[in-house]
Amino acid sequence: MRRSTSALVTKVWLYAVLVVFALPVLSMVVLSLNESRYGTLPFRFSLHWYQVLRTDTALLDALSTSITLATEVTIVCVVVGTLLTFGLRKAPIAITLPVNGLLLALLSVPLLLLSAGLLSVFDWLGLGQSTTALLLSSIITSLPFVVLIERGRLENLSPDYAEAARSLGAGPVRTFLLVTVPLMAPSIIAGGMLAFVICFNNFAIQLFLAPVGISTLPVQIYSMVRLGVTPDVNALGTLVVAGTVLIIVVLNWLTGNAARLFTTTRER
């Protein structure tokens, strides 16, 4: 009897937590469909803010900058990260130890501090705050996620398939491209999507390394929030969250359980 009561209480608590998780997002969704200029209730339905959003070039430019940046970063991270994952598999410890150390450092040093260090390096290189600096910094902060996810899959991959292909006469390149890569595909795609999300959301890096005059979406929202907002941010936020939900659905479909990606990534 007592056990079922405690089960019920914790279960109610779980659903309460889920509701609280949804509140800021729901608030954006509701206010994006609300007439009020100041985000105040009572609720009067209107699609006005979605129409405003269509002409808000600052916000839309920021969105397209973010998407372009995240796409470029994803492509580079997937290629470099996959090569790195395979290269590390049988590398001597003199290589794996420092490389893993750096990957771990990238995950554990607060991004505020990392961006200060990156800014110094780009100043030395004569790049300063520039699109190149922004691109390279975004790549380096997304890369560890790709490697960790792909490595998880590679470690569980039986070598039998590759060995079968080799013994049937396929060379190492053909074996790699036609056997190993297809076997790795779900984790490569999942790693790429995660790289996209991490890069898209990487506010600290974008704030400190983007050149003057170029705003990514988080940076644009940051400056708008501090200067007074128009509610079309609600409309954009609603659309971005819808995109996020879509990504989660796809990740779930690819990996069986998207949450696993995040828990095992962070455990190491």
């Binding site: 889920l18 998780f21 949804a22 800021p24 997002v25 954006m28 999300v197 898209f200 959301n201 506010f203 979406l217 988080p218 929202i221 940051y222 929030v225 936020g237 971005v240 969250v241 996020t244 939900v245 990504i247 989660i248 659905v249 779930n252 359980n257 998207a258 949450a259 995040f262």
Partner: peptide, 14 residues
């Protein structure tokens, strides 16, 4: 778990 991940991977600024 999907519902938990939504805030986890939504832009912090949003």
């Amino acid at each position: 778990l999907g519902l938990v991940i939504i805030p986890y991977i939504t832009s912090q600024l949003l």
